[in-house]
Amino acid sequence: MSDKLKSLINDLGKNPGLQQAFKTDRDSIFDQYQLSEDDRELLRQEDTEGIRRKLGDDESPISTNSIVHKAE
């Protein structure tokens, strides 16, 4: 679990100003949250699956809203 990465993502969800800064000047935000190079790269690439793995999402085989109806 990467606490700094988690903290940034949590804050992004609550703070529209931070969201805007994330879009325009990511590196400053990364510095502010003291992210590791690995975490920075995940965010630069917007690697959703990588982030989920990093945050410990290894228990759900169907990882998103894929609760599927059978075509009957």
Partner: peptide, 25 residues
């Protein structure tokens, strides 16, 4: 059946009596 760790953390902050359904898979 919330698949992401941030979502689960949030649920836990609201109510500690959580039962995960994902193990049914």
């Amino acid at each position: 059946l919330v698949p992401d760790p941030l979502g689960i953390s949030f649920l836990r902050s609201l109510n500690s009596n959580l039962v995960y359904l994902g193990d049914c898979y």
